[in-house]
Amino acid sequence: MARLVLWDIDHTLIDTRGVGRELSAAAFARTTGQPMREQAKIDGITEQVIFRETARLHGLTTSRPDFERFAHALTEEHLNHINDLRERGHALPGAAAALDALDADGVQQTVVTGNVRAVAEIKLQVFGLDSRILWDLGAYGEDNDARAELVRLSLQHAHVSAETAVLIGDTPADVEGAHANGVRVIAVASGRSDETTLRDAGAETVLSDLRDTELLVKLVRNDA
């Protein structure tokens, strides 16, 4: 039975319905002095890489201090627009029930996300999904560029082996990052990647969404 679930956030537990991109654009402009005309690919990518590659699209070369300024600005933008997040975004169907059921089953839960930690906390708090998350066991967009390294860090923080962890996410990058560490994956086709794409990426199990709480708990237990 799994002892730890590593959740992705965006398009797995929540959907900001475009608010996230708007806040990222505002933070980018504050940090670089340029409007964000386009954004680098974001699915499954860490915030550090998104900022660096987006800056490159605008002819800019950035440093770690630049990213730290961006992360601070991005956190402020989320704090200042909590009402927009709440009104326009939403928790995905079944997310709250899944978190509660896994907690009741004795499974520890954290997040492995490309978001910086402060933004991850705001996003889940806004939609009432934060209370079951053990934040110090997670890994975040400021911790490393590579998702596989984030998974490794989270396992290290939790002091668990890969065999006792399960990652739940919605992108091929989630699948690849988990498998690079020997972690089993439950993929959810609630984002931009469909079920075929996630199976082709190697996910052991693919769900259309999180609505079937009983099934999800069984899959985490690995007795479905």
Rank of each mutant, 00 (worst) to 15 (best):
L23R: 02
F28V: 08
H11L: 10
T32D: 12
L57A: 08
I42G: 07
H11A: 04
G33Q: 15
P35L: 06
E53N: 10
G20L: 00
Q48W: 05
F51C: 06
T46L: 02
E38N: 03
D43A: 09
G18I: 08
T46Q: 02
D8A: 14
G44K: 07
E47D: 13
H11C: 05
G44Q: 03
R17G: 13
I14C: 06
I45V: 09
P35A: 07
Q34S: 12
F51V: 09
K41I: 08
L57H: 10
I42F: 14
M36S: 07
T31M: 13
R37E: 13
R21S: 11
G44I: 02
D8M: 14
R37F: 07
D43Q: 08
E47N: 15
R21Q: 15
E22D: 15
A29M: 14
I14T: 08
V49P: 04
V49Y: 04
Q34D: 07
A29S: 15
E47C: 09
A55K: 05
G20E: 00
T32Q: 12
A25Y: 00
A27S: 12
A29Y: 11
T54V: 07
R56K: 06
A40E: 11
V49H: 02
I42E: 08
K41Y: 12
E53F: 03
Q34N: 15
T46N: 02
F28C: 03
I14N: 02
G44C: 11
A25Q: 06
Q39Y: 09
L57R: 11
A25E: 05
H11G: 00
R17I: 09
H11N: 13
T54S: 01
A25T: 04
R52L: 07
T54A: 01
L13M: 09
P35I: 03
D43H: 10
A29P: 03
S24V: 00
T16C: 01
E53R: 07
L57I: 13
R21H: 11
G18A: 15
R17A: 14
R52M: 06
T16L: 01
P35Y: 06
F51T: 04
R37Y: 14
E22P: 12
Q48D: 02
I14L: 10
P35M: 07
I45G: 02
D8T: 13
I9K: 00
Q34A: 13
E47T: 11
T16H: 01
A55W: 02
T46F: 02
Q48A: 12
R52P: 01
R17T: 08
L23T: 06
I14Q: 06
M36D: 05
R37A: 15
D10E: 08
D43E: 13
D15Y: 10
E38I: 04
V19T: 11
T32R: 09
G18Y: 07
G20Y: 02
R30E: 08
G18W: 07
D8E: 11
I9W: 00
I45L: 02
L57M: 13
A26L: 11
T32I: 12
G18T: 11
K41H: 14
T16P: 02
S24E: 07
F51S: 00
R30L: 12
A27T: 06
A25L: 04
I45P: 00
L57K: 05
Q48C: 03
A29G: 09
G33M: 14
D15K: 03
R52G: 01
T54Y: 01
G20T: 03
Q39V: 08
Q34V: 14
R37Q: 14
V19K: 04
H11R: 12
Q39C: 10
T46G: 01
G44E: 09
R56D: 06
D8L: 12
T46D: 01
A40W: 06
